[in-house]
């Protein structure tokens, strides 16, 4: 089951890439292609980790810890 979830996420990521990349390439925006690919890679990584049951750190935890530390 987990296997399939991972494959599905990778397929979605590939689909997003396939959808956006030609348009960016046609416009010739090299910088935009890089940022787009990096962000897509990061979110895909996080999604895959989450789907594999890895404990992804929760940003809300750190926010809570920070505001408790400064005592608000």
């Amino acid at each position: 089951m987990r296997m399939w979830t991972t494959i599905a996420i990778l397929a979605v990521a590939a689909a997003i890439f396939w959808l956006e990349f030609p348009r960016l390439k046609k416009a010739g925006k090299i910088k935009d292609i890089w940022f787009f690919s990096i962000i897509l890679f990061l979110t895909t990584t996080v999604s895959v980790l989450e789907s594999r049951g890895v404990n992804v750190p929760n940003p809300l935890d750190s926010i809570q810890a920070f505001y408790q530390a400064i005592g608000l």
Binding site: I16, E20, R23, K29, F35, S47, P59
Partner: peptide
């Protein structure tokens, strides 16, 4: 923030992140 010309390519990748964040948020 990244000095890009168009925001549209970022919608889908960031959306993916939003879904994951909304699941792990609490």
């Amino acid at each position: 923030f990244l000095n890009m010309d168009d925001h549209r390519p970022l919608l889908l990748p960031l959306g993916m992140g939003t879904v994951v964040l909304s699941i792990i948020a609490y």
